[in-house]
C-alpha cells in the first residue's frame, strides 16, 4: 500500500495535479485578524499558502505562530525556515513544535543577509546552509532522531520543499543545485520570481535533461509588478530578482495610473507561457502586499480551482 500523502499539497503534487500556491504578506500587526483577512483573500484561489520567515531580514510575524493561525482557519500552510536566525538547536526544536501544531509542509531557504533588512547591525547565524537545513530536518523525518542521535517518540511525517533561483549566476549550476537539494530531502521546489521566460526555459531544459524528463515537482514563482518604477527598484535593491528591461518597458508604455493593470497583465502573460511547459507542476504567486491581485491572475489564466482540476 502506498502511504497516505502527508498534506494536501503533497497529494496534489504526487498525483500530478496542477497546483497553485501563494505567499501571504505577514502583517506588522499584533492581532490575528490582519493575517487571517489576508490569507482568506488567497485561500479560494490556491492550494497552500507560504509563510515567510522574516523575509528580507526584516522581522515579521512569527512563522510558526502564523502557521498555527492558518491551521485554526482550515488553511494549509507551507512554512518557510531560513538559516539566518536559527542555529541547528533552534531549527530542530521549532520543527518538532511546528509538527505538533499540525504543520506538514516545510520549505527550506538560505535566507537573506542581515544587511538587506532594517536591522543590519544584527548578528547573522548561518550555522547551517539550505542544504544542511534540509538534511537536518530530513534526519528528524526519516530517523525520528535529533542530529545528536537522541530519539523522538515518533517520526514527524513532513513534506519538505526548497527554493531554486534559475535567474541569477551561476546559471549552469542552478539545476544541479536543485538536484542536490532533492537528494538532501526536498520533495518539491518553488522558484524565485520568473520574469525572464527564455532563461527559465533553458534552466528547465537542463533540468529535464539531468533527470531524464522526470524532475521533482517544480512551481514557478510569479508576481505582478506595481509600476515600472517599482520594477526598477526591485531589480536594484532586492538581491536575486532579475527583471529584464523589456518587461519594464512594456509596463512603462502606460501612464502611471494604468501601470498597475499592465503589471498584472504582464504577470498573466508569464503564467500563460509557463503553465503548459513539461516539468512545470504549478505556480507560486508572490504578490507582495497585494493579495487582491492573486484572484485576478488565477482567474485570467484559467487556473481557478474547479477549472484546473478538470
Amino acid at each position: 500500500m502506498t502511504p497516505k500523502p502527508v498534506s494536501d499539497l503533497a497529494r496534489r503534487l504526487e498525483h500530478g495535479l496542477f497546483t497553485v500556491t501563494a505567499e501571504v504578506t505577514l502583517p506588522d500587526s499584533i492581532e490575528k485578524k490582519a493575517l487571517v483577512e489576508r490569507a482568506q483573500m488567497l485561500e479560494p484561489y490556491c492550494d497552500a499558502i507560504n509563510i515567510t520567515d522574516s523575509t528580507g531580514a526584516v522581522p515579521h510575524f512569527s512563522n510558526i505562530a502564523a502557521a498555527s493561525i492558518l491551521i485554526e482557519n482550515d488553511i494549509e500552510p507551507i512554512i518557510q525556515f531560513s538559516c539566518r536566525d536559527r542555529n541547528r538547536i533552534a531549527v530542530q526544536a521549532d520543527v518538532i513544535g511546528a509538527y505538533a501544531i499540525g504543520v506538514r509542509n516545510i520549505f527550506c531557504v538560505t535566507g537573506d543577509g542581515v544587511q538587506t533588512g532594517d536591522h543590519p547591525e544584527a548578528k547573522p547565524v548561518f550555522d547551517l546552509d539550505s542544504v544542511t537545513l534540509l538534511t537536518t530536518i530530513n534526519h528528524l523525518k526519516t530517523r525520528g532522531k535529533f542530529l545528536s542521535g537522541r530519539e523522538l517518540d515518533d517520526k514527524p511525517n513532513l513534506y519538505l520543499g526548497a527554493a531554486v533561483n534559475p535567474f541569477v549566476p551561476p546559471f549552469e549550476e542552478r539545476a544541479l543545485r536543485l538536484l542536490k537539494k532533492h537528494k538532501a530531502g526536498a520533495s518539491f521546489f518553488q522558484t524565485q520570481y520568473c520574469f525572464d521566460i527564455e532563461r527559465f526555459k533553458s534552466f528547465l531544459d537542463r533540468l529535464l535533461g539531468l533527470t531524464k524528463g522526470a524532475p521533482p515537482p517544480l512551481l514557478v514563482g510569479v508576481g505582478p509588478l506595481r509600476s515600472a518604477r517599482f520594477a526598477r527598484w526591485l531589480r536594484e535593491n532586492v538581491p536575486g530578482i532579475d527583471v529584464p528591461e523589456h518587461v519594464i518597458e512594456k509596463i512603462e508604455k502606460y501612464p502611471r495610473k494604468e501601470q498597475q493593470k499592465a503589471g498584472v497583465e504582464a504577470c498573466i502573460e508569464i503564467v500563460d507561457a509557463v503553465k503548459t511547459l513539461t516539468g512545470v507542476a504549478g505556480i507560486h504567486v508572490m504578490a507582495y502586499n497585494w493579495e487582491a491581485s492573486v484572484s485576478e491572475i488565477v482567474k485570467a489564466t484559467g487556473l481557478s480551482k474547479p477549472e484546473r482540476d478538470n
Binding site: 538560505t110 537573506d112 538587506t116 548561518f126 541569477v168 549566476p169 524565485q192 536575486g240
Partner: peptide, 21 residues
C-alpha cells in the same frame, strides 16, 4: 562567503555575478 555556505550559492547572487552582501 559572508553566509559561510558550503553547498553552493544562495539565491541572492547579483546579475553581474557579485555577492549579495
Amino acid at each position: 562567503c559572508p553566509k559561510t555556505l558550503r553547498n553552493g550559492p544562495c539565491g541572492g547572487v547579483r546579475s553581474n555575478g557579485n555577492c549579495e552582501i
